[in-house]
Nucleic acid binder design. Sequence first.
DNA 1: AGCCACATTTGACACGTTCCAATACTCGCG
DNA 2: CGCGAGTATTGGAACGTGTCAAATGTGGCT
Lengths: 346, 346
Amino acid sequence: MNAPVSIKDVAAHAGVSLGTVSNVLNRPEIVAQSTRDRVYEAIKMLGFVRNESARQLRAGRSRTIGLVVLDVANPFFTDMARGVEDEASMSGLSVMLCNSDEQDGREARHLELLEQHRVQGILITPVREADERLARLQERGTPVVLVDSRSASGHQCSVSVDDVLGGDLAVSHLLKAGHERLAFVGGPASLRQVADRCEGASRAMARAGRSPTDLQVLATAALTVAGGRTAGGQIAEMPPAERPTAAFCANDLVALGLLQEMTRRKISVPDELAIVGYDDIEFAGAAAVPLSSVRQPRQDLGRMAARLLMEETYDSDGHQHRQVVFQPELEVRQSSGGPVDSDRLG
Amino acid sequence: MNAPVSIKDVAAHAGVSLGTVSNVLNRPEIVAQSTRDRVYEAIKMLGFVRNESARQLRAGRSRTIGLVVLDVANPFFTDMARGVEDEASMSGLSVMLCNSDEQDGREARHLELLEQHRVQGILITPVREADERLARLQERGTPVVLVDSRSASGHQCSVSVDDVLGGDLAVSHLLKAGHERLAFVGGPASLRQVADRCEGASRAMARAGRSPTDLQVLATAALTVAGGRTAGGQIAEMPPAERPTAAFCANDLVALGLLQEMTRRKISVPDELAIVGYDDIEFAGAAAVPLSSVRQPRQDLGRMAARLLMEETYDSDGHQHRQVVFQPELEVRQSSGGPVDSDRLG
DNA sequence: AGCCACATTTGACACGTTCCAATACTCGCG
DNA sequence: CGCGAGTATTGGAACGTGTCAAATGTGGCT
């Protein structure tokens, strides 16, 4: 309704030049007290609000960083995002959170928009590995940091968790508990997280001297509760003699879906099917049967990624790309035969 | 690393004027085939990427809408956000998702940033009701739509769900099941959602001829799993004779926390304590004891809010503010004594 | 009075786009 | 051959900032 108020209007109203208003805004210490007060008053009176677009245009870069995740509905990623935001806001940056939904097309669209916005940099958990798009983004001047993903080329920074180890931990635990026939549930296999966790599972099998065929792989369309339920149906319909007695799921959403389907079909967890999930989201401990899960330092992942990005931004010359790898930890609960009454809280 | 490439560089490289390149970008149909091709080629060769800041500056408004929610870690809000994004992207708008974390200060900071970005409009689930900040935002020209909240003044559009009815449904159900001593668990009471759901609970009590003192109100610091656990501790420590036999929680996170604490302390749900939650998030059906919950049309809430905003934006003259109210539905599951084996999936 | 140092303020330009009025060119028709 | 009607292209003026060299004012000192 009101005509937009610009720095020029403020200047006119305060009876100073345009440059002075700008100085008040950006380097108040160099302008005389009395002038400063007059300008502040004009700002308040007119309801002046800085125009971020103009600032960005002038500066050449925005004061925003982009964060592209696989699934905002997954608490793992919102926790990670929280870490990013905390770190970013300490440097006065804001975060643009984008959801690729594990879809290549959506991811591409978001990257395009973020580049057009000239964001400081992009933190991304990519849908596919070794993406040329990311390489081109970097070449054109937008730094990219991989989160919960590892840079194969070494051409960018990355922060990840050793998912192979995580898979190994989970399956070793199940083997030690005496399980013979195991299943790995998760997909799509094109996601690095899925592939690595599966590889870790295989590694544990091999080390225990088991045949790889003892590990059945059940693919899901996505890492969601619905995907877990579908897989649960498949498991339930196997003849009991062939049915795995333990399942390691690529994340907690899948594990919860699986658990839910087992409960519905009256297949006891953990007696008939033990389950281990991944991520240890807050809901895991509150599940039908408290879920064993591989815990990742979610917030730290985000914080570190943001920090690496800023390192790269502020020291773009001498910057060496770094690959930070965190270690996962296994949290054993009831779903894999852990203590029935745990006093520990997830 | 490379110098940023602008429309001017493209023009030079294609041997045309700057205005022509702009035309190719915005109204390709009015420029001759051959010229167009030449320009496209130059764009590709130079790796030109539009500068959104400059476009926005010129246009006066950005092509983004802001969404401020109380808690991104709550699946209710991410589902809602999904609805907003779907609707927005159909009109070529992107969404900036902000988390106020139920904190006034964070909310203020986000609003400030969004206004500086000159967003098309702001969808917000406010921390406090009747916020003068929002009124001022509107006056200065940024439309505001309340989501999961109701406009008291009628000065803005709003989309909400009848939370009083929701509370009524939940408590009526519990009363019908024969419970005598009830508890309402949730807070802070300053949140409209909390106050309304509690009011609905009281209404149901009154209608059933119960004394208001039969409804004990347990306040939580926030609507989180942790808050629910704390409240659970309080309930557990009451002498069994005074302890409520049923609890209605202000949302599912609180309910899950409460449930988790009861399980830990070996207090049976629903036998010793029946629980009803609110929102019917995906995890509710997968909980330790499948959670009865009041369902809200989460995605529709978001979609409708986005639609109202666009209505206001594109027809700013003749626009009349609207208050859309959806109806909630009660989903009865095992936590409040519903059927033990439900074939329905949450 | 003249000079200098210092504090404050000014004015103009650049950032990359979009938009519009003005120009150049082409063709058909009288 | 000239004219009108398109069609295709051009040039330049904004949009709101930040920056910086230059201008202005102030006061002290010789």
